[in-house]
């Protein structure tokens, strides 16, 4: 195993493989399940390696407190939260400053895709629970939440796909794990609406030349298009399942 006491941690070996054996431009397997929380209007579960996330959408519904309602559109609220057991050392369930910031950036990543003008005086509430964290949790949260929004039947301009780019041992890598985030040089979370070609989340934490950044963005764009296909497939699967259930239900 890795020796964390020793400062020199090898994140890319001599064969160009990463700690978990992936190539730099290789994503972890992503599993997306739609509609798993019955009470929510829409929900999704995303598993990306050891990052595991539930997302639920409630709404459009009446706004509480009422004075927050807007006369021309729905408000979108988002809560990103990590369960106390999702990380190595127990995290207090109270929202941290990090979670407050991430809730905001996730909301701002999702809102451009939602046709909020159709629901004046209402709210669309997105809840994200990180069950197990192993890097790229905000990106996986966006992937899950955007599928949950679609499955809630909320009109959308596009789905939002997301992935992270890192730089470890001077190499740009796709889909950063926890250890690569901790000991790597750069973390760049990214989200976009693949069909519209609009970036809705872009953060950078680490030093990059602008040319490197350009390369990172094109890497992320390519990966988002792959994730987009998986999101669509997961949504379609759910509706094939539903349709089958309705037809079979009709027979009996």
């Amino acid at each position: 195993m890795l020796n964390t006491k020793n400062k020199k941690i090898v994140l890319i070996d001599s064969d160009g493989r990463r700690v978990d054996g992936r190539r730099p431009d290789e994503m972890r397997d992503i599993k997306i399940k739609v509609g798993i929380l019955e009470n929510a209007d829409g929900s999704a579960y995303v598993e990306q390696g050891n990052t595991k996330i539930y997302a639920a959408v409630y709404g459009p519904r009446e706004v509480h407190p009422r004075h927050l309602a807007l006369p021309d559109r729905a408000i979108v609220r988002c809560r990103y939260h990590m369960t106390p057991f999702s990380v190595e050392e127990r995290k207090s369930p109270a929202p941290t400053r990090r979670e407050i910031e991430l809730s905001k950036v996730i909301r701002e990543a999702l809102t451009p895709a939602i046709v909020v003008e159709q629901f004046p005086f209402s709210s669309i509430d997105v809840f994200v629970e990180v069950i197990n964290a192993d890097g790229s949790t905000r990106c996986a949260s966006i992937v899950a939440a955007s599928v949950a929004l679609a499955s809630a039947g909320i009109p959308m301009r596009d789905l939002v796909a997301a992935c992270s780019i890192g730089k470890v041992d001077s190499v740009l890598v796709l889909d950063v794990t926890d250890i690569e985030d901790k000991y790597g040089e750069v973390d760049l979370p990214f989200a976009m609406m693949p069909n519209r070609g609009e970036i809705t989340l872009l953060q950078l934490d680490g030093v990059l030349r602008l040319e490197e950044l350009e390369k990172a963005i094109s890497m992320a764009t390519k990966a988002c298009k792959e994730i987009y296909e998986k999101q669509k497939k997961a949504l379609k699967e759910k509706y094939v399942e539903l349709r089958k259930a309705i037809i079979e239900g009709g027979k009996t």
Binding site: M193, E198, T200, Q203, G206, V207, R209, L213
Partner: peptide, 13 residues
Amino acid sequence: KVCTIQKRGEKGL
């Protein structure tokens, strides 16, 4: 060199 980026606001780029 750029060392921090934060996109803010409820639209895309």
